[in-house]
């Protein structure tokens, strides 16, 4: 089986999806986050392989999970975040394709080759990874702020000029890091502590919002924004006084992955597509477009200088021990979290 996979993939790479795959129509259906891959790259893929692409979008991992659970067959490539991968594997929603065995599979960076959520990369290949931290405009603060969540939860002079992501998990996790509590806690007492912190912070927030984050900082609506680092990079590109913070209490590291659902109609084309995205020069193009780092060795020479030089994207090594990988919590922990979120916004 494995041999055949290798052979067919290699052949496909050589012939550009040739005779071995004749039985599959030349199409691949992507189900992606919005604006997560440049159109030019998709066009180049079609030109090189003759495989046409259709693109549909979703906006949360849970939406993806629900859609696949609902039996939405026909998607060939999806990009679940790491924390939800075990749930999806367990539910039988993903198929094995053994990413390292693909022609470009050897390019996976060592730190990403054997993740906890998918040992040995049997079901997934790495896509982008990033962090969820804080961005602020130092022109609006006059001073450089300390690298701590304290500036976010107790904003002091920035009160009313701060925005949080409208994301239950991200907001809860940030509070948990700051208080030194396990983000998957099931203890109602710890939950109460987190709620107290968030309730005290709420009057100082202008809003909770996950869309239009970049624009909001650039327009001066807020001085500080709880933000994904790729968006922070785009802010920094437009405003050189903007700074990205890796809080010392801990920062969520998330990793998105390419995967093939069980109901895929074109699994062979999906492999060709995934392999295409593990080529250093191709994946570098995505990093340049999204502002998120990839997990492919050898992509560095193809990055634009501004990406390579931005600590928000190309994380300085000294911050590595602050990273906290995203994790799937138990149903009891999720319930507690949702109750706190609801009570916060009651």
């Amino acid at each position: 089986m494995k041999l055949r996979t290798i052979a067919s993939a290699a052949l496909a790479a050589l012939l550009g999806a040739g005779a071995a795959l004749a039985e599959e129509e030349k199409q691949v259906n992507l189900f992606f986050w919005p604006s997560y891959i440049p159109d030019e790259l998709l066009e180049r893929f079609t030109k090189e392989t003759g495989i046409a692409i259709t693109m549909d979008i979703y906006d949360t991992n849970e939406a993806l999970l629900a859609k696949l659970q609902a039996g939405a067959a026909g998607y060939d490539v999806v990009i679940p975040s790491g924390y939800i991968v075990p749930t999806m594997i367990q539910a039988g929603l993903l198929q094995k394709f053994d990413a390292p065995s693909l022609p470009n599979g050897g390019n996976i960076a060592p730190g990403f080759a054997d993740p906890e959520f998918d040992p040995g990369r049997q079901y997934t290949a790495p896509y982008m990874w990033g962090t969820t931290g804080l961005v602020y405009d130092s022109a609006g603060t006059d001073v450089e702020l300390p690298e701590s969540w304290s500036v976010f939860f107790e904003p002091g002079p920035l009160s009313g000029k701060v925005a949080a992501l409208d994301d239950e998990v991200e907001v809860f996790n940030a509070a948990a890091y700051y208080l030194g509590i396990d983000k998957c806690t099931e203890d109602p007492r710890e939950g109460q502590q987190i709620l107290d912190l968030l309730s005290a912070q709420k009057p100082h927030l202008l809003l909770y919002g996950s869309s239009g984050t970049i624009d909001r900082v650039l327009a001066g609506e807020v001085t500080m924004h709880h933000i994904w680092n790729g968006a922070a990079h785009r802010v920094r590109k437009a405003r050189d006084t903007a700074r990205y913070i890796y809080p010392k209490e801990g920062i969520t590291q998330w990793a998105d992955n390419l995967a093939i659902p069980t109901g895929a109609e074109h699994p062979e084309n999906a492999k060709i597509f995934i392999d295409f995205l593990m080529k250093p020069e191709n994946v570098a193009e995505i990093t340049n477009f999204t502002g998120y780092m990839n997990a492919i060795s050898g992509s560095e020479p193809y990055l634009t200088p501004e990406i390579a030089a931005d600590p928000a994207v190309n994380m300085p090594a000294e911050y590595a021990d602050r990273l906290r990988p995203g994790r799937e919590c138990s149903p009891a922990a999720r319930d507690l979290r949702n109750r706190i979120w609801t009570r916060l916004k009651k």
Binding site: N29, F31, P34, S35, T54, M55, D56, I57, D59, K67, A72, A73, G74, Y75, S210, S211, G212, T213, I214, D215, A231, R234
Partner: peptide, 22 residues
Amino acid sequence: LAGPSSTTLPIYMFGMMRLGVT
């Protein structure tokens, strides 16, 4: 209710707005 290849204009627009309002 959208499935493969059935993204409609409002969904597409919603996706655009998530990234930022250009």
